[in-house]
């Protein structure tokens, strides 16, 4: 379980990006963080993932404060897929995947290679392992980074209590890559009880898959609840300035049609 209590974050120049945000996300569920640009979504992810420390408040994963984790302990507990990872040197795809095993052991063993092979197969990366990463297209790069995040989380077994954070991972990607990544995430949640926290612009995907939605505006959490509670015509007009038509999608979840 991920718990954020009264999270406040100020930049060094004193600007308050997040004020007093509290949230809880159960293990084995998917949570979506939504809001307009500049609402503080990415900052919230960074605090929850332990990249930045909150100015006030605290984050707990499985009842343990984030500050009590060593870097390595935290790295085998959660991994993060960022929006974009630029690399200036020509590391190969394989080099980058293998980095995911860094927090696990000083020496890479055959077991580690087997795990990397598993990820290569499930993301269909086998063809271009020697390719230099900077020469790849945006979509392929993101697939590789997703693979690295998975390599970092393995081994996964049932009720694994591990967390995957994704910070707008699909911006400017092909539909096919988007679908591949999202399908894999869904299956890891179903099969292993992975906990997933998203920042995603695709509200319909959030509505379809997430158990809980948090809506941020100007650094504050304005709404949280099930997709049914959050995605109403009224809310979407108030917080996103859009007129939508709602229809019932799969599992009776709201599906938005933007006019």
């Amino acid at each position: 379980m991920i718990l954020g209590e009264n999270l406040t974050f100020q930049t060094s120049s004193g600007k308050e990006i997040l004020s007093n945000v509290s949230l809880s996300i159960d293990s084995g569920t998917m949570a979506g963080i939504i809001g307009k640009n500049g609402a503080g979504k990415s900052t919230l992810i960074k605090l929850l993932a332990g990249l930045d420390q909150p100015s006030q408040g605290e984050v707990k994963i499985d009842d343990r404060e984030l500050e009590d984790f060593s870097e390595r302990e935290l790295a085998v507990k959660r991994s993060v897929l960022s929006q974009e990872v630029p690399v200036s040197f020509g590391l190969s795809v394989l080099d980058i995947l293998l980095m995911g095993r860094y927090p696990h052991a000083r020496r890479v063993t055959t077991e580690d290679y087997k795990k990397v092979d598993f990820v290569i197969e499930s993301l269909d990366l086998g063809g271009g392992l020697k390719t230099s990463y900077p020469s790849l297209s945006g979509g392929e790069r993101q697939k590789v980074q997703f693979g690295r995040a998975l390599c970092q989380l393995l081994p996964l077994e049932k009720d694994c209590r591990k967390v995957l954070f994704l910070d707008e991972p699909l911006a400017a990607l092909d539909l096919s890559v988007q679908q591949l990544i999202l399908r894999r995430i869904r299956s890891f949640v179903d099969d292993y009880g992975l906990t997933v926290v998203f920042v995603l612009h695709d509200l319909n995907y959030i509505s379809r898959h997430c158990d809980k939605v948090f809506l941020l505006e100007k650094g504050q959490c304005m709404l949280h609840g099930s997709p049914k509670d959050v995605f109403t015509v009224d809310h979407l007009y108030r917080y996103f300035d859009v007129n939508v038509q709602l229809i019932k999608g799969a599992e009776n979840r709201p599906h938005m049609i933007f006019n």
């Binding site: 085998v76 993060v80 960022s82 990872v85 200036s88 980058i96 980095m99 860094y102």
Partner: peptide, 11 residues
């Protein structure tokens, strides 16, 4: 080489 942010995430 992946940048400082990703290195931190890797532990």
């Amino acid at each position: 080489a992946l940048g400082e942010r990703e290195a931190l995430y890797l532990g």
